[in-house]
Amino acid sequence: MSFVEFLIQKKNVLFTSACLIVAYTIIWRLRKALPASVSMIMMLFSLDLAFSLDNTLGLPPFDFYNTNIIPSFNGPDALTLLLYPAFGFLFTYFYYRFRISGVAITGYILLWAVLGVCFEALNVQFDVFQYKGWRLTYSFYIYLLVQTLMVLMYNFIRETFVRAKSTTNMRSKSQWHAGSKRY
C-alpha cells in the first residue's frame, strides 16, 4: 500500500486527530479563563449529549448513521468523542468572553448551529460519519436543541457557582472576624 493510499484509507482518523490537536491547543491556552469546576461540567455535559444521541440515533431501532465506517465502538470513535468536550468548552468560553445576553443568545445559538453543520459536512467528506437515512438538516435542528441546552446549563451552573463562592467568602469573612483558626 502506498503512502497516498494509506492517507486516503485513514483520512477519517487523520482529520479527527488534526482537529483534536488544534482544539486542545486552543483550550490549553484558554484553560484559566473559566473556573476548572465549571469547565469540567460543561465539557462533560457536551460529551454526554453527543454520546447519548449517538447511542440513541446511531443504534437500533433507529440506526441513522455509522461513525468511522465500522459499526462498532473503536479507537477512531473514541477520538471523535473527544472532540465534543472541546466544542463544549469553546462554546462556553466565547459565550462567557463576549458576555452574550438577551437577543444575542438566539444569534449565538444560530451561529454555532451553522458552524456545527459546516463542520459535520466536513466530517462526512472525511468519512467520519456515514449516513443511513440521516440528513444535515436534521443535524441543524439537533444542534439548535443541544446548544440551547448548553446555554441553559451554563447559566444554571454559573449561578450555582457564584452563589456557592459568595457563601464561602461570607463564611470565611465571618469566621475570620470571629478569630477562627480554620483558615
Binding site: 476548572a36 469546576s37 457557582f161 463562592k165 464561602t168 463564611r171 470565611s172 480554620r182
Partner: peptide, 13 residues
Amino acid sequence: YRRVLGKDGALHE
C-alpha cells in the same frame, strides 16, 4: 471533583 471545587473556592470546607 471535590478537590477541584475546593481549589476554585466554591466549597466551604
